[in-house]
Write a protein that binds this DNA or RNA. Structure first.
Length: 823
RNA sequence: GCCUGGGUGGCGGAAUCGGCAGACGCAGCGGACUCAAAAUCCGCUGGCCGCUAAGGCCGUGUGGGUUCGACUCCCACCCCAGGCACCA
C-alpha cells in the first residue's frame, strides 16, 4: 500500500485552487442566503503565523466550506493589520524601514495561509497600511472631528518608556504596557481624544442583543462601568461654597460623617483654614509626585482642611478632608464618606479616628461586622428608619431634589479614547496647525495624508513625534488662509485601522487607475446585503480593546448613515489559547513554541488542521501534544488506505466478478446516516473535536467490513469523504478525484441525512435494580410496553439473582431507555 | 475583595431535556509481521478485593440535599484559570 504523500498532493491542489480564481469568491447581491464569517485579521510580525492563528482560522474555514456546500453565499475574507508598535519596534532593531519589510511579512503570512488551504476570497484582501485604505481611516477621523467628537487636551496619560509613546487606558491596564509589558508612567502630554464616552450608554445597552460570550459582555460592562446615583450639595460651614458629591448610596446619608475631596478638587485651597494650609500643601505636593510616577499606595493617606460641611439631611457638622483615595477624574471629585457602610471610608475613619454611625442593618437578624456594605433596612435615619435601602434612596432623593440640594446623576468608568501616538508607523492624523487659524482639517480631497518614507524614524521619547523632524513633509500651506502652517505630527493608534476593516472587505473594488492596487467605493447597498458579520472568531485578548473601539466606530458610522445597522458583530466566539506541551503559555523564552511550518512539514496541513480541532473544545485552553498529532496522522493514512481498498473492490465489481456482487447493507446505511447527522450538528455547534472522533469510529467500522471481505458501495464511501472535506480538504479532494470525480468538492452539495434510516434496529434497555445497573436487555422491537419488557427480563440471568425472590415495590419504565425495579 | 469560566483515568477529552461514566485520541503493557528496527495491524488498559477466574465494592473537587436513579438539579464550601480592582 502506497503511503499518503501529502507533500505532493498538497502542492498539486494549491496549484489548482490558485488557478481557479472564482473558487472561494463571495458574490454581491446573488440570491443564495448570505453568511459572513470573519476572522480577526493578524498582525504580520516576523514570527509568521502561530498555532493560535491556525486554530481560529481552521475553525472558520471548516464553517465556510460547510456553508458553501450547503448552498450559501459565503463571505470569508482575510487582510492584514499592519500598522503599529510591534512591527515598528522590530524594524528599529533591524535598522530597516517598516515600509519595505512589512509587505514582505504579509506575503509570508498569505503564503502560509494558502498552504493551510484556508479558503479566503483573496480578491478582497486589504491591508491597513495601503494608502487607499488609510485614506478612509483618515476620512472617518475627520468626520468625527466635524461631529465634535475629537478634542485636544493636555492630560495625564499613561506613557510607556520603552515604546516611547502615550497609550490609551485600555492599553495600560494594571499599569503595564499592553504591547511590551513595561510599567507605564504618567506623563502630561497634549493629546487628541475621541469622545467614546458620548456613546457609553449605547455601547452598554446594545450589548444585550449580541450573541457574545458572557465573559466578554461582562468585561465590556465593567469597563464602561455605569453607575446611577445622586449628586448632593453639602454647604461648607462659614463659606459661600457648596461641595457637590456623587453617591450611589443615598440611603446611607445619615451615616455620612465626613467629606473627602480629591487632591485635584478646585475648592481644596479655598476652604482650607490657614492653620492647616502648610500641612495641606505639603501633602498635595507629595501626592502629585506619586501620581506622576504612577505610584499607588495601599495605605490610605489624607489631611484635614480645618473646615466643616453641613449634612443636608440632619444638619450635622462634619469635617472636610483631602485624600488621594478619592479620584479627581471620577464623579465630582468629592465624596460623602459613610464609614459604617463603605470599605475605604471605614479604613480611613479608623486610621484618623473619625466618627462611625451605623445606618443600615441586614433584613434578617444576623451578626454583622462593619463595614456592612449591602442593602438592608435603615436605622438611625429619622423618618426614614425602617425603610428598605432601595425605597429610602428614592424617598430621600425626592426630598433633596425638591429642596434643590440634589439631582439624579449617572457616571461612567469609561474615559475618552486617547487617540494620538508619538510614533512613526501609523496613520498620520489629518489635521494642520496654522498659527493664524488654529487647527484646520486637511480638505477631504487631499486625503490620504501619506506617511513619508524616511531613513530615521526613531521615537524621540520627549513626547514629540519623529515626523516633526521631516521638514519637507511637515511644512504645509494652511488650506484656510494659505499661510505657512505645519501638519499634525502624531499618528493614530494601532486600533484605528481595525475599527472598520470588516467593512472594507465588502467595499473593495478593482482600481480603474494603475497607480493603486484597489479602490474602496462606499456602497451602502452592498453593506446592507452583507452586514452584520454573522460570526466573528478570535482571541479573548481583544475583549475591551478592539471590540469596544470597533463597536464605537460602527455606531458613529451608523449615525452618519454609512452603515445600515447598529452593531457590527452578531455572534462572537473566542477560541481558547493553545499552550505549549508543558502546559505553559507559549513563549520564546520558555522555548515551548510550536511552529506550524514545522508541523506541516512533518505531518501535512490536513493533519495540523485536524489535530488543532481535535485537541479539545474550541473555546477551551488546552496544551499542545507532540505525540497526540500522530493519532490524527494515522487516521488520515488509514482513510487513504481504505480508499485504495475500496477502489480495488470497485474495479472487481465492475469486472462482474460474481464474488463481489453488491448487496443492500442496512447497517452501513444506518451508520452513514448517523454520521451525516452528527457531523452536521457538530459543525453547527462548533463541536469539531467530537465530529472528528465520530469520523474515527466510522473509519474503523468501514475498515472492519473490508477486512471481513464485505463490499462497500463506493458512493457511500464518497459521502464520508464529503463530510471529511471541510476538515481535511487536500486528502478529501484527492480521494474524490481518484474515484474519477471531476468536480471540486467546494460546491458539491452537503450530504442530507434520511430520518427514516436514523431509526435504530437494535434497542438496548438498561435494567436497573434500585437504580443500579445490573444488566442490559437487547431487543429488536421498537415500541415495547412495560409488561413486555418485564417478561423479557425474566429470561435474563440477572432476574434469578436479584429479582426472583425479591418483593418488587415499584417499577420505573422509560420507553426506549431504562427499566428500574425498586425492591 | 468582586465578576466570569471551570474541576471527570497517567494525559487531552466524551457523555448534561437526570437514565450503560470514561467514547475518540495519546501514553503504557502484551502479541503478530520483520534478521532487526521503524511503520502497520490485533488485544488489554479508572481504582480496590479476588487465583491472571467468576464475581463484588468504590469512583466525575469536598460535604449535605432532592430523586426509583445525579458528572448532570439545589444548598454550603474548597481549589484552579482568566478578567477587574481605591470608580464612591
Amino acid at each position: 500500500m502506497r503511503k499518503y504523500n501529502f507533500k505532493q498532493i498538497e502542492k498539486k491542489w494549491q496549484r489548482i485552487w490558485q488557478k481557479k480564481k472564482e473558487i472561494w469568491r463571495a458574490f454581491d447581491f446573488i440570491k443564495k442566503p448570505k453568511i459572513y464569517i470573519l476572522d480577526m485579521f493578524p498582525y504580520p510580525s516576523g514570527e509568521g503565523l502561530h498555532v493560535g492563528h491556525v486554530e481560529g482560522y481552521t475553525a472558520t474555514d471548516i464553517l465556510s466550506r460547510f456553508y458553501r456546500m450547503k448552498g450559501y453565499n459565503v463571505l470569508h475574507p482575510m487582510g492584514f493589520d499592519a500598522f503599529g508598535l510591534p512591527a515598528e519596534n522590530f524594524a528599529l532593531k533591524m535598522k530597516k524601514n517598516p515600509m519595505t519589510f512589512v509587505p514582505r511579512y504579509i506575503d509570508r503570512y498569505r503564503q502560509q495561509m494558502k498552504s493551510l488551504a484556508f479558503s479566503y476570497d483573496w480578491q478582497r484582501e486589504i491591508a491597513t497600511i495601503d494608502p487607499e485604505y488609510y485614506k478612509w481611516t483618515q476620512l472617518m477621523f475627520l468626520k468625527m472631528y466635524q461631529a465634535g467628537l475629537v478634542y485636544e487636551k493636555e492630560a495625564p496619560i499613561n506613557f510607556c518608556p520603552s515604546c516611547k509613546t502615550g497609550l490609551a487606558d485600555e492599553e495600560a491596564v494594571g499599569g503595564k504596557c499592553e504591547r511590551c509589558g513595561t510599567t507605564t508612567e504618567i506623563k502630561f502630554l497634549r493629546q487628541w481624544h475621541i469622545k467614546i464616552t458620548a456613546y457609553a450608554d449605547r455601547l452598554l445597552d446594545d450589548l444585550e442583543e449580541l450573541d457574545w460570550p458572557e465573559n466578554v459582555k461582562e468585561m465590556q460592562k465593567n469597563w464602561i462601568g455605569r453607575s446611577e446615583g445622586y449628586e448632593v450639595l453639602f454647604t461648607v460651614d462659614g463659606y459661600d461654597e457648596k461641595i457637590n458629591v456623587f453617591t450611589t448610596r443615598l440611603d446611607t446619608i445619615y451615616g455620612a460623617t465626613f467629606i473627602v475631596l480629591s487632591i485635584h478638587h478646585p475648592l481644596v485651597l479655598k476652604i482650607t483654614k490657614p492653620d492647616y494650609l502648610l500641612n495641606l500643601e505639603e501633602y498635595l505636593q507629595e501626592e502629585l509626585k506619586k501620581e506622576k510616577l504612577g505610584i499607588f499606595d495601599q495605605e490610605l493617606t489624607g489631611v484635614f482642611t480645618g473646615s466643616y460641611a453641613i449634612n443636608p439631611v440632619n444638619k450635622f457638622k462634619i469635617p472636610i478632608w483631602v485624600s488621594s483615595y478619592v479620584l479627581g477624574h471620577y464623579g465630582t471629585g468629592a465624596i460623602m464618606a459613610v464609614p459604617a457602610h463603605d470599605e475605604r471610608d471605614y479604613r480611613f475613619a479608623k486610621k484618623f479616628g473619625l466618627e462611625i454611625i451605623e445606618v443600615v442593618r441586614p433584613n434578617q437578624k444576623r451578626e454583622v461586622q462593619l463595614p456592612f456594605i449591602e442593602d438592608g433596612v435603615l436605622i438611625n435615619s429619622n423618618e426614614y428608619s425602617g425603610l428598605l435601602s432601595q425605597e429610602a434612596r428614592e424617598k430621600i432623593g425626592q426630598r433633596l431634589i425638591e429642596e434643590g440640594l440634589a439631582k439624579k446623576a449617572v457616571y461612567y468608568k469609561l474615559r475618552d479614547w486617547i487617540f494620538s501616538r508619538q510614533r512613526y508607523w501609523g496613520e498620520p492624523i489629518p489635521l494642520i496647525r496654522c498659527p493664524q487659524c488654529g487647527i484646520v482639517p486637511v480638505p477631504e480631497k487631499e486625503l490620504p495624508v501619506t506617511l513619508p518614507k524616511v531613513k530615521s524614524y526613531e521615537p524621540t521619547g520627549t513626547g514629540e513625534s519623529p515626523l516633526k523632524n521631516i521638514k519637507k513633509w511637515l511644512k504645509v500651506k494652511c488650506p484656510k488662509c494659505q499661510g505657512q502652517a505645519e501638519r499634525e505630527t502624531q499618528t493614530m493608534p494601532q486600533w484605528a485601522g481595525s475599527c472598520w476593516y470588516y467593512l472594507a472587505y465588502i467595499l473593495k473594488e478593482k482600481s480603474k487607475s494603475k497607480k493603486q492596487k484597489y479602490e474602496i467605493v462606499w456602497d451602502t447597498k452592498k453593506l446592507k446585503y452583507w452586514l452584520p458579520v454573522d460570526l466573528y472568531v478570535g482571541g479573548v485578548e481583544h475583549a475591551v480593546l478592539h471590540l469596544l473601539y470597533a463597536r464605537f466606530w460602527h455606531k458613529f458610522l451608523y449615525d452618519l448613515g454609512w452603515v445600515p445597522n447598529k452593531e457590527p458583530f452578531k455572534k462572537l466566539f473566542n477560541q481558547g489559547l493553545i499552550l505549549g506541551p508543558d502546559g505553559q503559555k507559549m513563549s520564546k523564552s520558555r522555548g515551548n513554541v510550536i511552529n506550524p511550518d514545522d508541523v506541516v512539514k512533518e505531518y501535512g496541513a490536513d493533519a495540523l488542521r485536524m489535530f488543532e480541532m481535535f485537541l479539545g473544545p474550541l473555546e477551551a485552553e488546552k496544551p499542545w501534544s507532540t505525540e497526540g498529532i500522530k493519532g490524527i496522522s494515522r487516521f488520515l493514512n488509514r482513510v487513504w488506505n481504505l480508499a485504495q481498498k475500496i477502489k480495488i473492490q470497485d474495479t472487481k465489481i465492475k469486472n462482474k466478478d460474481s464474488r463481489y456482487k453488491m448487496q443492500e447493507d442496512r447497517e452501513l446505511d444506518y451508520e452513514l446516516n448517523k454520521l451525516i447527522y452528527e457531523t452536521t450538528q457538530g459543525i453547527l455547534n462548533l463541536r469539531f473535536n467530537v465530529v472528528i472522533s465520530k469520523f474515527m469510529i466510522f473509519e474503523d467500522f468501514l475498515r472492519k467490513k473490508i477486512e471481513n471481505n464485505e463490499k462497500i458501495d463506493k458512493e457511500k464511501f464518497l459521502i464520508f469523504i464529503k463530510l471529511l472535506f471541510p476538515f481535511a480538504p487536500y486528502l478529501a479532494q484527492e480521494i474524490w478525484q481518484r474515484f474519477k470525480k471531476k468536480t471540486l468538492l467546494d460546491y458539491e452539495p452537503w450530504p442530507q441525512y434520511n430520518e427514516k434510516l436514523l431509526v435504530k434496529k437494535i434497542f438496548n434497555y438498561v435494567v436497573q435494580v434500585n437504580g443500579k445497573k445490573r444488566g442490559i436487555l437487547t431487543t429488536e422491537k421498537e415500541n415495547l410496553t412495560e409488561s413486555e419488557i418485564k417478561n423479557l427480563v425474566k429470561n435474563l440471568p440477572l432476574y434469578k439473582k436479584y429479582l426472583e425472590k425479591a418483593k418488587i415495590k415499584k417499577i420505573i419504565f422509560i420507553k426506549g431507555k431504562v427499566i428500574n425495579f425498586v425492591i
